[in-house]
Design a protein around this nucleic acid. Structure first.
Length: 475
RNA sequence: CGGGGUGUAGCGCAGUUGGUAGCGCGCUUGGUUCGGGACCAAGAGGUCGUGGGUUCAAAUCCCGUCACUCCGACCA
């Protein structure tokens, strides 16, 4: 079709990294920030984030969470209370040493995550079993000084949501960890149309300071895995470090059990890399800033803009995020631009259509044109958006499932990941074998999936396997 | 932190043996167009990343430096 346009965005298959960068910059989702590794999220990109926030927030509240806000700066001393945690984050923490025109007595960490400050506050707030559970969530920015960065996937500063809870018992805390993982999974599939695989992370991949980390992994178009969300069971590690105690019914003082869970703007990266194509973005209707764009054709002929406006009003009334592109440009230009920006449905309306009482309706996920009676748009379009949303999930899942394979040797793992697959394999559970896979195949253990049945032997060393694990190259 | 690459107009690039800055797209104005990236005309826009050196003369040659980027290592 349009060679020149297609050339503007790198080939999806030939150079995925370049394609990705082109898409985020050319569709005006982001721009690079002045500080290395930071990004400016532009209105179009931010609108996606707002849709994600809105949707997730409802789900969190349905599960008992309340929103709060904790400070950006954390005294370094707080930070050093949990040994594993400080060790895990130390290299990437940015520190404020000067303020008010002088050197500070105590340096302040810019939060890389808020377990420490929230833990400190919880220890003040929690006295009795009657105060539990505490389930709070905050939407904020965090900073981690990363060596290599890529918009949305890994930036020095990013926006996220972090939930922090305290429960009286291990069972409740564990239940919450799994519950929030499930919330994420449902959200990813229903709203982002991205199928995910959930499971426990290995010791190596675990969150610093956690007893256990559970993650959801999504497959990108190039077969690599993206950790799209995590839910941590922290046991009593943090409650002991931060002195989070409550007086139980039986009159004894006990440490609470804490959990934390988070997803970030990385989800936007996931959407791009799971659904995009040669023409650019393909956004699932539920997160698309603009769900329907109406393009008037031959607007100078009179009555066209009026009709377009009328359709827009009908759709807005039906609860659709619809917009009309009145710009004085050739329609072809607009078609391509909105396709690049991933708008799920386009409506074309011109003199010919008005005469016939129909409009041209085009799905971004298929680009096939259909004619719909103008009077029926108010009903047909919302239905179509739902269909697109569902189809996108089905297609992604189909595509992904074909690329999940099994292997029982190191070579099999290597061949598998080279073929852009997720590779399920038996694993003895030792760190050496995990490192060996990384060395030979540049793949890491994504999540354990023991519930599917553990193979007899470890694919690496041949000793009896303790786990079934998914190996994949990852972002 | 190692290895490669690139810095020239908003974006993409050209610039030969050193000779004083160019192309495409975009932008502005006017007009004709409008069903898959339209056309004509007239414009605006540049400390050639940066510091030094060689030279009558440097985007071009030499030395330094900075930034960005890709591939590793490290990490959510």
């Amino acid at each position: 079709m349009d060679k020149q346009f297609v050339k503007e965005i790198a080939d999806v298959n030939e150079n995925f990294a370049q394609w990705y960068t082109d898409v985020v910059l050319k569709t005006e989702l982001v721009d690079y920030g002045p500080v290395k590794g930071t990004m400016v999220i532009r209105p179009y990109g931010y609108a996606i984030w707002e849709n994600i926030q809105k949707d997730l927030d409802v789900r969190f509240k349905e599960n008992g969470a309340k929103n709060a806000y904790f400070p950006l700066l954390i005294p370094m001393s707080y930070f050093t209370k949990e040994a594993e945690h400080v060790e895990g984050f130390a290299p990437e923490v940015a520190v404020v040493t000067h303020a008010g025109g002088g050197k500070l007595e105590e340096p302040l960490a810019i939060r890389p995550t808020s377990e420490t400050i929230i833990g400190t506050m919880y220890s003040k707030w929690i006295q009795s079993y009657r105060d539990l559970p505490v389930i709070m969530n905050q939407w904020c920015n965090v900073m981690r000084w990363e060596k290599t960065t890529r918009p949305f996937l890994r930036t020095s500063e990013f926006l996220w949501q972090e939930g922090h809870t305290v429960f009286a018992t291990e069972e409740e805390a564990m239940e919450n960890t799994m519950r929030m993982l499930e919330v994420y999974k449902t959200f990813a599939e229903e709203t982002l149309a991205i199928p995910v695989i959930c499971g426990r992370k290995t010791e190596k991949e675990k969150f610093a300071g956690a007893v256990a980390t559970f993650g959801m992994e999504a497959m990108m178009l190039d077969g690599k895995s993206l950790q799209a969300g995590t839910s941590h069971y922290l046991g009593q590690n943090f409650s002991k470090s931060f002195d989070i105690k409550y007086l139980d019914k039986d009159g004894t003082l006990k440490y609470g059990y804490t959990t934390s869970w988070g997803v970030s703007t990385r989800l936007i990266g996931a959407v791009i890399m799971a659904h995009g194509d040669q023409r650019g973005l393909v956004l699932p209707p539920l997160v698309a800033p603009v769900q329907v764009v109406i393009v008037p054709v031959a607007a100078h002929k009179g009555g066209v803009n009026e009709k377009a406006n009328e359709i827009e009003e009908t759709l807005v009334k039906a609860g659709v995020r619809a917009e009309t592109d009145y710009r004085d440009m050739s329609p072809g230009w607009k078609f391509n631009e909105w396709e690049m920006k991933g708008v799920p449905v386009r409506i074309e309306i011109g003199p010919r259509d008005i005469e016939n009482g129909t409009a041209v309706v085009v799905r971004r996920d298929g680009l096939d044109k259909t004619f719909v009676k103008i009077d029926e748009l108010g009903k047909a379009i919302p239905e179509l958006l739902l269909t697109v949303q569902k189809d996108m999930l089905l297609r992604s899942r189909e595509r992904r499932d074909k690329k999940i394979i099994e292997a029982n040797s190191l070579d099999g793992i290597l061949k598998g990941v080279e073929g852009q697959n997720f590779v399920k394999a038996g694993w003895c559970g030792c760190r050496e074998c995990e490192d060996k896979v990384k060395e030979v195949a540049q793949a890491t253990a994504r999540v354990l999936c023991d519930e599917e049945g553990v193979p007899e032997t470890c694919a690496v060393c041949g000793k009896p396997a303790k786990h079934k694990v998914i190996f994949a190259r990852a972002y």
